[in-house]
């Protein structure tokens, strides 16, 4: 397996605050997949995303691009990284300079990476990229950002990412600021790009339901650490970690069965979170030992790891490396 990108025991602290603790995960180059990173605000998911993008340096561990430390790359390798790994951010309003036409975000990468020799060729590339994300070039080019909707602007960012034919797109909450009706369209676009162009996607979100729809694998994060990881379908259908269970139970369903609010209880175990499991203060099944040390990841199945002492009968995950657990989690080439 050829690794495009690997986080190796990557962690990040800001002074006394731990934003991310010891995550080891790899993105394979040959077998593209969609990996969802799900968690609440402050769980460390954005820190992980920014680390994979090289925007945040780990304070412990390393991030490797083709086996080399991302923060010690030569200029050529750095340029290759900048092309291979693209970002889509949350806010489709803030990424645009309001004084430039939206064409600017598309022509700049074409120029910087010398994707085209002539203006006509550049225009052709840009139009193809826009069509690939379901936009009509004649409705988009020449406009200013304020003349387009949030959904259109976010799709232009996807088009910009596609233009470079990257191997990986890291999308940090790409649809949380667009309307529910448009979310589906944008996420379907991402999935199509994955299927047709073989682009891997790291989908950072707080929305487990959309993650379930488009992803192959998932990392569930809670207070700076991975609490459960593996193939997404078995995790959503049979969550093992008490936090994953709580997360799934908290999603309001479009259903005539209305038990959602009656079950909303804050279970307090009365144990303080000092040095032990970070979920202990909310955990309904906490035991005495949970307060003593942070639980390691236990490999409960070939395609699942859980950081919970309730699963300590399973073997500990070797070197806490999720790469092996996630390796089998890409889906067959074309889905029905």
């Amino acid at each position: 397996m050829t690794e495009l990108l690997r986080a190796e025991h990557a962690g990040r602290t800001y002074g006394k605050l731990t934003a991310l603790r010891d995550v080891s995960v790899a993105i394979d180059q040959e077998r593209p997949s969609i990996l969802a990173v799900v968690g609440e605000s402050g769980s460390g998911k954005t820190t992980l995303a920014r680390m994979l993008l090289g925007l945040v340096a780990p304070t412990t561990g390393r991030v490797l691009y083709h086996g080399d430390d991302l923060h010690r790359l030569g200029s050529e390798a750095r340029m290759a990284f900048r092309r291979d790994v693209q970002a889509i951010f949350q806010d489709p309003y803030e990424v645009y300079n309001p004084f430039y036409r939206v064409d600017h975000v598309l022509t700049t990468p074409v120029r910087k990476f010398r994707l085209a020799r002539t203006k006509a060729e550049a225009r052709g590339l840009i139009e193809t990229a826009l069509r690939a994300v379901g936009l009509r070039p004649e409705e988009i080019l020449g406009r200013f950002p304020h003349q387009l909707s949030g959904g259109q602007r976010q799709r232009i960012m996807v088009a910009r990412a596609v233009l470079l034919r990257p191997k990986l797109i890291v999308a940090d909450e790409p649809v949380s600021m667009v309307d529910a009706s448009l979310r589906a369209t944008i996420l379907e676009t991402l999935r199509t790009l994955h299927e047709d162009l073989g682009i891997s996607i790291v989908y950072i979100t707080h929305d487990l339901a959309t993650a379930y729809q488009i992803s192959d694998a998932i990392l569930v994060m809670y207070r700076a650490a991975v609490v459960e990881a593996g193939a997404i379908a078995p995790i959503v259908e049979r969550p093992a970690h008490p936090y994953t269970k709580l997360l799934i139970a908290s999603i309001p369903r479009v259903s005539t069965e209305r038990s959602w609010m009656s079950e909303a209880t804050t279970t307090l175990s009365g144990l303080a979170a000092t040095g032990g499991c970070s979920f202990i203060d909310r955990c309904p099944v906490a035991m005495a030992g949970c307060a003593d040390a942070v639980p390691p990841l236990y490999r409960t199945d070939a395609d699942r790891a859980v950081a919970c002492y309730r699963h300590q009968a399973s073997p500990e995950l070797v070197a806490a490396d999720l790469g092996d657990v996630l390796a089998g989690c890409h889906r067959p080439a074309k889905r029905v």
């Binding site: 979310r183 369209t185 379907e188 379930y212 488009i214």
Partner: peptide, 29 residues
């Protein structure tokens, strides 16, 4: 939830991702 009558309501209900079935997400065109 069970029998929306307006086509827009139906599209809104259908656009919500389910945790029960995996499949294509349906946006409102």
């Amino acid at each position: 939830v069970t029998a929306p009558r307006h086509p827009y309501t139906r599209a809104l209900v259908a656009s919500l991702p389910s945790l029960e079935h995996r499949g294509r997400l349906q946006g409102i065109p």
